[in-house]
């Protein structure tokens, strides 16, 4: 646990070797702070950190392994290559710091650069590299010392959108061949889905969700995650096939459940009409449009009412119904479109 003024980071997390954990969360959730604590740059106020069977921090026993002796690889957003050293010297730095002779360290470094597909860049200075190349050099520099744990803070944020997919694919390949556990911080859901074997969502210093990427995408547990994966999320109490999500607001679901549950449905499952519909849909709620914006080739409506939600409708529907901010509408969703899972 780390306290810093008003902010408290309180996290309990254990990971298996070979796992790629993506830490996802809004700005200020404590993702980077968690990495700094793991890297030993910050000391926890209370708690224990052990990596690969080695205790690195234990406040109860006043134990703190210095950042230089933790063997925790830490690659940050702007990579922090040493600007006055060339690529080989950068990669060999960790080995040199451990007392390895220069020629030896450099031949190791050259082997790592080959592995990273960076032959021919040995004598370049960091400023002569593209973002993707710099990232691979930073990765090689961290991996060459055989870290017990690898930390990546926003590894793709410094890249331009054009080169991101390619670098992301390369990064994924390199992480797959790394035997230890990797923790990646990001706030990009696509990055999380593609890199992670497990996603941990952090909000205001607490873990709010922990699971595989597909679990996360299907069963979000917070508003933040629901927005990221594009779902409307409600929480309520179920009995039978009805979930009470608020005063005078119920959602009908397709299977029988009971107790506290989450209810999720995608915005495109919402049908909008200006008159109360008389179809088969059992979920019909009145509401008022508060915002209208383009969303891909659809139009996304923000609807306020007994059940607030986002609804994606076609531009034709918007025109035919004459929708705009302030329009009173009826929103309906088929029970079969609603996912329900225990809270």
């Amino acid at each position: 646990m780390v306290r810093r003024d008003e902010f408290v980071l309180n996290v309990e997390l254990s990971a298996e070797p070979g796992e790629v954990i993506v830490l996802l969360g809004p700005n200020g959730a404590g993702k980077s702070t968690l990495l700094e604590v793991l890297a030993g740059v910050l000391r926890p106020d209370t708690g224990r950190i052990s990596v690969a069977g080695v205790l690195l921090d234990d406040t109860a026993r006043r134990l703190h392994v210095d950042k230089a002796r933790r063997r925790v690889g830490f690659v940050v957003q702007d990579y922090l290559l040493f600007p006055h050293m060339n690529v080989v010297e950068n990669v060999a730095f960790g080995l040199r710091a451990r007392g390895m002779r220069r020629e030896h360290a450099q031949s190791h470094a050259i082997a790592w650069l080959e592995r990273m597909g960076l032959e021919g860049f040995e004598r370049r200075k960091p400023r002569e590299l593209s973002g993707g190349q710099a990232q691979r050099v930073a990765l090689a520099r961290s991996l060459i010392v055989d870290p017990r744990l690898l930390l990546l803070d926003e590894p793709l944020a410094a890249l331009d959108a054009g080169s991101r997919p390619k670098v992301r694919a390369e990064l994924r390949r390199h992480l797959e061949s790394y035997p230890g556990c990797t923790i990646v911080v990001t706030h990009d859901p696509i990055e999380a889905m593609l890199l992670a074997t497990r996603v941990v969502v952090l909000e205001s210093g607490e873990i709010v969700q922990d699971g595989t990427p597909s679990e996360l995408a299907r069963h979000p547990r917070t508003e933040y995650v629901a927005r990221l994966v594009g779902l409307n999320l409600l929480r309520g109490t179920a009995s039978g096939t009805v979930v009470e999500v608020g005063p005078h607001a119920v959602v009908a679901v397709a299977r029988e459940v009971s107790g506290a549950v989450y209810v999720a449905f995608p915005p495109h499952a919402v049908t909008i009409s200006t008159d109360r519909p008389v179809g088969s849909a059992r979920n019909v709620w009145p509401g008022r449009v508060t915002d209208v914006e383009a969303h891909g080739d659809l139009v996304r409506l923000t609807i306020d009412g007994t059940v607030p939600m986002l609804a994606d409708v076609t531009p034709v529907a918007v025109a035919d119904l004459g929708l705009g901010p302030g329009s009173d509408v009826w929103a309906s969703v088929k029970a079969s479109e609603v996912t329900v899972y225990p809270a």
Binding site: K67, A68, V72, V76, L80, F82, A97, V145
Partner: peptide, 13 residues
């Protein structure tokens, strides 16, 4: 933060 990078790579102060 360059110094921090060097430390986490195992370099002494």
């Amino acid at each position: 933060t360059l110094e921090r990078a060097a430390w986490t790579l195992g370099a002494s102060k």
